[in-house]
Nucleic acid binder design. Structure first.
Lengths: 207, 207, 207, 207
DNA sequence: GATGAATGAGAATTCATTCAT
DNA sequence: CATGAATGAATTCTCATTCAT
């Protein structure tokens, strides 16, 4: 009997390798050989676990999102603080993630770029689903706070999407202008501003 | 007298073609042939005006930034309204630009993706310079308002970078989640929130 | 006592599987995996019984010829009818075989194609030997009839080879133009014509 | 302006090269590189004239059939001799073609092999059409002779298909058993036998 | 200046074969 | 004995770039 291999675990190994390689070279310049080298196996083996380079990107992208989003979102949902503070902490947590997972950010940019020129793909479907989920979770946190009477009503979806856009914008800035990004980071303004979305949105809703 | 062709004008033709093609297929999948077709000339001719595909991307990227940023920034600088309002108008102007120049947004994403995996290139230098300039102009508007006594002092660079990040985030959202983007857009929350950066930053600065 | 497996029998299982797979996909497009699947075993096991894919083809080819030729030839040799009639019956028997063993015909075509581009191989040796034997047996039937005074002398080798060619031609036609093949089949002309080789050959010999 | 190239002529050059290479190595073992080498150009150039390896095979196959069949058929149609003799001459002409165009025969076998495992392809459509045409022309020669009162009526389609099968069988024999083939050839029996299809078929029709 | 035929360096992918378990 | 994970050579096809006309 041959070596028993946990297919899922093995896939994860490749995803990790792909993450590094896609981050370093970009998706298109990255070769399957480079991924194989990074994973310490031969080219052919990748195809035992993924149908194609694109499939590998898909799997990688999914991992990426989880790494990057899960932590921040669970902070938002589980913290006992007031809403605004929780948003601030959530954002701060993502900023930490950016610091820590630079490769993930680089890779996620590659995935975004793929989405731009690909109308109907598994990749787009998956990314859309994740985007929707993130928006849902953020919105849910807002909705709950409203229901609990913690804050006045406001357009929660729009607020969620605004924050999401700003967060992705920070990921982007960390890549395309890392020096500026770090400068801005130190001021601590960004999380506070994200927290302020609540009062801004309420203010608008009351007019 | 030979046909006088304005080199610069001719380049612009190619840049326009490249813009469309890069937006449709993505930079890497776009072929020089496709760009030539879109420009209505032969492949070889492109090389009379650009050194390489990358050089074409560089030129395209530069055009992109100008189209997308110039309008909004000049609105910010030239409007006689109060600062917060001007920021709102500026942001609103960019959102209109996103609507109008979808191809530009798609192409700019391709440029961003290239930056991710390219440490030292002309592209990066150019993009950095433009990013810095945009931040400078935004910051200058803030600084002037402070100097004029219109608003209390606040960390203007950080504020500028926050808004810039949020703006790029919106460009991104318009591509990776266009449906959600449109939903959020209608609420009008986003420009207002961007305007609120001023008071948020001031609030933080006074503590 | 370990499980006793008849190596020969086991080989035959693989040959049967290979027959089906080669017929469906063609020799080159057929993968060892597909053969293994068809045989209900693992890829590796095939190599316990065959040295290589080519070796498997060799074994398959040999089986093929036996299936297809043996029946017809023994009809020719064992029937008590007059020579011409026996040839007709022999041919008719092969036509039935074609009907029945479509996969065999498809596979044999694959073997023929291999022979075309392979000067010195076991495959060619084996096929030559079988071709020679078939010609020998057909010729022997003719020679015996001449010796017995049943028919006048004629060039028996040439006659045998003509009939053999025509038979292979029918196998071919059944594959490359199955509709036409069936049309021609119904007329019953073909076996009769093959039978007529005897009188044609005698007629030529008497001039 | 670049070199003006006659696309059709250039294609023919590649077809000729492919013919040689397919004949020598077999379709599947032949590499595009080898074809390019044989044509004295680079790999990439082939793709300026053919979509794929399969497309090249298609073009090659079509050329093949024309070379091999056209001559024999026009002999059949244009000779002023009696029908049986004309059939004999036609067959003899093809046998000469086999001698002369050995590479064509080898390649045609490769095409036949492809047909075996490919239900619906351009290749099959093209081959079917050619097969039908050949049968039509042979049959037409028979029909005309009947109409002219030269011979009594007989099932002309079946006769045409029988002869066609036998001819292809000879092509096959020339490849898979070349020594035997040459032996049989010398006797001159084969063309005569093919000519005898007419009387055999008439004999059957009168019963 | 413009053209597009030709080039050839790659890259993704496949699959026969091996061999550790 | 059987298995199937791993290998890596081989192959098709692409496309940026060049250059003769």
């Amino acid at each position: 009997m041959p070596k028993i291999v946990d297919k899922t675990e093995r896939r994860q190994q490749f995803v990790l390798a792909a993450l590094r390689v896609f981050a370093e070279y970009g998706y298109h310049r990255a070769t399957m050989q480079a991924v194989a080298d990074a994973a310490g196996v031969s080219k052919g083996s990748i195809y035992d676990y993924f149908d194609s380079k694109e499939d590998l990107l898909l799997a990688t992208a999914e991992s990426l999102l989880i790494v990057l989003i899960e932590e921040s979102m669970s902070v938002l949902e589980q913290s006992p603080r007031p809403l605004t503070e929780r948003v601030e902490i959530c954002v701060a947590s993502l900023l930490e993630g950016i610091e820590q997972w630079n490769e993930v950010c680089l890779s996620i940019l590659q995935v975004w770029a793929e989405l731009g020129s690909d109308e109907d793909s598994d990749l787009r479907a998956m990314m859309s689903e994740h985007y929707r989920q993130s928006a849902d979770r953020l919105q849910a946190a807002f909705d709950v706070a409203i229901e609990d009477g913690e804050v006045l009503p406001f357009p929660t979806r729009a607020a969620a999407l605004s924050v999401l856009a700003a967060l992705d914008g920070m990921i982007l800035q960390s890549i395309i202008a890392p020096e500026e990004y770090k400068r801005g980071l130190r001021s601590g303004l960004f999380p506070r501003w994200c927290g302020s979305i609540v009062s801004t949105a309420i203010g608008g809703a009351m007019q």
